[in-house]
């Protein structure tokens, strides 16, 4: 990894994300994935969302990332209601970067090709390749540009996925169990990368994890149970 320039603090008091009484129901209301979630995330915050399996962590992440639509309630991005957004694809492409547990790299594309995927169809983006190359250099993957996912280790694949999430300079990184498929050494390395990138790029990071050690790397830990937030940084709600 290349040395990163130090940045002391990245948080501001402006909420980048907020929600009001957010619910998400499946099976015609029989399954309640989220059951009245109110949350406010400040710009630049590193938030870990924890809780047991099925508590609604990933559902919350999917709603924030517009991969699902809320059954009721409202989400806001910088005070703008999600319901008023006309092009959710554009929002995902420009404001959000996803990092998945199982990387979800395209096997036929090289490292560089995978990182460039979110730039496809982005009008007027002429320096995407230069940005992708620079990002991969920062991730210590400069010698892996032409490698295919099958030729990379788990840790390398996740770093490629992080570079892919960052290619369009998003505001928010949504990471769903980013270290879930990695051994402890690679997990620690990936968390370092996320933390460093967050500092360098003033990113807001929302990371779902069930691992307390991973959650400890965040500024704030939100714990969920049965579709509700039960504690926020240790404070019972």
């Amino acid at each position: 990894m290349k040395p990163l320039s130090p940045i002391c603090s990245v948080t501001t008091s402006t909420p980048v994300l907020s929600s009001r009484n957010l619910t998400l129901h499946f099976d015609q209301g029989r399954t309640k994935a989220l059951n009245g979630v109110d949350i406010e995330i400040i710009e630049g915050e590193f938030v870990a969302v924890t809780g047991p399996s099925g508590c609604g962590k990933s559902s919350l992440l999917n709603l924030i990332g517009t991969l699902d639509q809320a059954s009721s309630g409202e989400l806001f991005f910088r005070q703008q209601p999600y319901s008023s957004m006309t092009d959710l694809s554009e929002f995902r492409r420009e404001q959000v970067g996803f990092v998945f547990q199982s990387f979800h790299l395209i096997p036929t594309l090289t490292t560089l090709g995978n990182v460039l995927l979110p730039t496809v169809g982005r009008a007027g983006d002429h320096n995407a390749t230069a940005r992708a190359t620079a990002l991969l250099q920062q991730m210590g993957l400069e010698s892996r540009l032409d490698h295919f996912p099958s030729q990379l280790s788990g840790g390398e694949r996740q770093r490629v996925a992080i570079a892919r999430a960052l290619i369009n300079d998003p505001t928010i990184i949504l990471a769903d169990e980013p270290t879930g498929s990695l051994d402890s050494e690679n997990a620690s390395h990936v968390l370092d990368v996320i933390a460093n990138m967050r500092l360098r790029k003033s990113l807001t990071v929302v990371m779902v994890t069930h691992d307390p050690n991973v959650a400890a790397r965040a500024d704030r830990e939100i714990c969920m149970r049965d579709g509700k937030i039960v504690t926020d940084n240790g404070v019972n709600l």
Binding site: G65, L67, D87, S89, E90, F91, R92, R93, E94, V96, F98, F100, H104, I106, L117, P118, V120, G121, R164, N168
Partner: peptide, 19 residues
């Protein structure tokens, strides 16, 4: 299907998927 889901999650417009 999952790969197409990834592309959409990465911000691909449905039109780009059609293309």
């Amino acid at each position: 299907t999952r790969e197409i889901g990834v592309l959409l999650a990465l911000g691909w417009h449905p039109r780009t998927v059609i293309k």
